[in-house]
Amino acid sequence: MRLVTTPSQTVGPYVHIGFDPMTVTDLAKDAAGERIVVAGRVLDGAGQPIPDAVLELWQANAAGRYAHPEDAGSAPLDPAFLGFGRVPTDGDGRFRFTTIRPGAAPGPGNTLQAPHIVVCLFMRGLLRHLFTRIYLEDAPENAGDPILALIDEPARRGTLLARRTAGEAEYRWDIVMQGDRETVFFDV
């Protein structure tokens, strides 16, 4: 017999009580790889900052391997890297986290997924969380990425590209919920 899944409900305005005890804004710690910072803002349909959002992050290590038994790839695991982050926005809708540049991971068929970070987004007003991805604009693998290729309007792919800020290992990436610059979300 198949059971129906429990429906999602919003995290509401007091999400910090439940999520703050496990906040992780430094995913890198002692892990191997190139340290990068990703920072940005979460904005609503009126362009106003969203102060009560939480981003959860999941990514492969520098070699492209996930710390999970179902990743049977041959790339090495890094015992110092879990790959999970939980990052709240502040009063101005800003977030910032440190991680290591993920390696490319296998995609469907014989494709290769460009380095990316999976984002699960929660906030008051969302009855169900949203999934999106962060890609790094300077990664040459982006051109062949099978998931970016699913986005029909090439202009919208840009909403998933984190832009390198001048000279630093820091990337800028915003989430826009509605409007012309609306971020691409995935039905997964």
Binding site: W58, Q59, A60, Y66, A67, H68, E70, D71, G73, L82, G83, F84, A105, P106, G107, P108, Q113, H116, V118, L130, F131, P146, I147, L150, I151, D152, V184, F185, F186, D187, V188
Partner: peptide, 14 residues
């Protein structure tokens, strides 16, 4: 939302 397959990035997790 753009429908996407479940890759190794989605079926794994912390």
């Amino acid at each position: 939302p753009v429908r996407a397959p479940h890759t190794i990035s989605e079926i794994t997790g912390p």
